[in-house]
């Protein structure tokens, strides 16, 4: 075996071992490194009231309700069938909408409502002009709502 081939074998073996180690570490981190819990995760493993966590999922259709005081919003986060009611006081980002992704930071109160102190909007990987067909086949004409 030439020295060059020896070095190549050594380098490739080291690289394979390294990638294997990284993959093992990453898969072990899979649950720990999660940025947020989904309602389904919380249904399986409930989190104690008062513990600060992030909750992520989709804002349920027709679930956003503005309370009479003008700054409090109630809505429901759903994902994989499970649902979590959320209450938030403050100004949500522009992209916070029904049927759209959301990440809420906060804690559960004793009645099981998730009280959020921060709300982040999460959008999906689709980008399209305002007047184009949506993936589910419905044609949307939303140009006028973008003028604001």
């Amino acid at each position: 075996m030439k020295a060059k081939h020896q070095r190549l074998t050594l380098a490739l073996l080291a690289l394979a071992a390294l990638i294997g180690a990284a993959l093992l570490a990453a898969s072990a981190l899979r649950d720990e490194a999660a940025y947020f819990y989904s309602p389904a995760d919380l249904q399986k493993n409930p989190v104690a009231a008062g513990k600060h966590i992030r909750l992520g999922g989709m804002v349920e259709d027709k679930s956003i309700k503005r309370l009479a005081d003008g700054v409090t919003i109630d809505f429901v986060v759903e994902d994989g069938g499970a649902k979590t009611p959320v209450r938030f006081r403050g100004i949500p980002p522009d992209l916070f909408k029904e049927n759209s992704g959301v990440v809420a930071e906060g804690a559960f109160d004793r009645s099981g409502v998730f009280v959020a102190d921060t709300i982040l909007a999460k959008h999906d990987e689709r980008y399209m002009p305002p007047e184009l067909t949506r993936k589910d086949g419905q044609v949307e004409h939303r140009t006028e709502t973008l003028e604001q």
Partner: peptide
């Protein structure tokens, strides 16, 4: 893989081997 393995705020990949989820007019 970070947006596939873990829950993340960043959206998933738009341009993959299977195509693009960005409309051609924008892409």
């Amino acid at each position: 893989r970070s947006v596939v393995w873990w829950n993340s705020l960043h959206q998933g990949p738009s341009i993959t081997l299977r195509g693009s989820t960005i409309a051609p007019e924008i892409l």
